[in-house]
Computed example of a mutant assay.
Amino acid sequence: MGQRMIGMFDSGVGGLTVMKEILAQLPDVQIIYFGDTARVPYGNRSREELIHFGEEIISFLIHQGAEAIVVACNTSSANAVPVLKEYYNLPLIGTIEPGARAAVQATATGNIGLIATEATVRSKAYSSAVRRVLTKGILPKKTELREAWQKGGHSIELVKAQACPLFVPLVEAGLSHSPEARGIARTYLAPIQEAQVDALILGCTHYPFLAPVIREILGEEITLVDPAQAMVEELKEVLEQLGHNQEKGQEMNKTSNHHRFFVSGDPVLFEQVGNTLLPGQIHSVKQVSWHQ
């Protein structure tokens, strides 16, 4: 297929959890990553701001040579991607529908939970996506629940969405495993426990950094759903189509397998925190300023 160049962006280091999954399954792609660390967190931003940020970053990534964009940010995916898809003539892969699809397939009771930023919870994008994937015929793997739902005898829905505004700042500061993180997580996760969910969507790409703490509090019986895996499946389909189109055109330029990293804030902090997830893979981070 030849090497493809993929653009990715997030409000900060969170999107690296998606990048890790992409590299595990698609080691030959070259990734241009943008972390908007000067404007993190996105969770308290307006829809208009998120669309504006997305325009700036996607245009930058296209200028860098990106052939497809992975929006590795749930807040942007929920609020901005539906609009941004109309602006750009290249594939944009968001987190919402892949995450909803994975949660529906994972639940055994029909009770799905969500932890996310305030903006993602407010958008109700995941609730809508759960209903949408069910109407597309994507159903739970558990036979009893699937059959009960098809007969109209059991609901499958997002029963509790919990905003966790302090999670992103904790991760960005490198405090994912701190006592503060554990205390804050216990408070946020109490309503999730009360709702008796059995599949919990990690509705922010920063949250897998906190997965050990979340797992410690909730126990093994709750499935943590990371949309990243389902996103990679969608990316594979996009790359296949890009490869098919390439065969009809000219041979693409060969590039090195060196990933590039850009941030709008502190490159040193990004490198330090990012390398806790992708050891030794993040270096030469460049800072980009939108304003002269």
Score class of each variant (00 low, 15 high):
Q105M: 15
E55Q: 11
H291V: 15
T107L: 10
G274A: 07
A161K: 11
A173D: 15
L84N: 00
D28L: 10
N245E: 15
I22Y: 11
H244E: 15
H154E: 14
V70H: 09
V133A: 09
G35E: 02
V213R: 08
G43F: 00
P140I: 13
V29T: 07
V40E: 00
S11T: 02
A125C: 11
M231Y: 11
L166F: 13
E180Q: 11
W149E: 08
G65D: 08
R215I: 02
I115H: 02
L145H: 07
V81W: 06
P227W: 12
Q281N: 04
L278P: 04
I58E: 03
W149H: 15
F167C: 07
G12P: 02
G183N: 15
L92M: 06
H177D: 15
S11Y: 03
E55S: 06
G249E: 12
R215T: 15
Q287N: 04
P165N: 10
Q229A: 13
H258Y: 08
K20L: 07
P140G: 09
A80V: 12
F270I: 00
I138A: 00
A106H: 12
I22T: 14
I282Y: 02
I96E: 08
G183I: 10
P98C: 11
T276G: 05
L224Y: 06
G174V: 10
H258L: 09
W290H: 01
A103T: 02
Q272L: 06
D10R: 00
T120M: 03
I214N: 03
K248C: 01
K85D: 00
P165Y: 11
R146Y: 06
S284W: 09
S176G: 14
L145F: 10
A185L: 09
V70W: 07
I156C: 13
G65E: 06
L175K: 09
P208F: 05
E86V: 02
H177F: 07
Q105D: 03
D226R: 03
Y126C: 07
V81Y: 10
L23E: 09
A68V: 01
G110V: 07
S256D: 13
I282D: 01
C204D: 08
A211S: 15
H52T: 12
K151D: 07
E237L: 15
G137D: 13
V288P: 05
E144G: 06
V121L: 08
E233P: 02
P98S: 13
I214Q: 07
A199E: 14
V285R: 03
I32C: 01
G7A: 01
F167Y: 13
L170T: 04
K142Y: 10
V288M: 11
S46L: 14
A106I: 11
G54Y: 05
S178H: 11
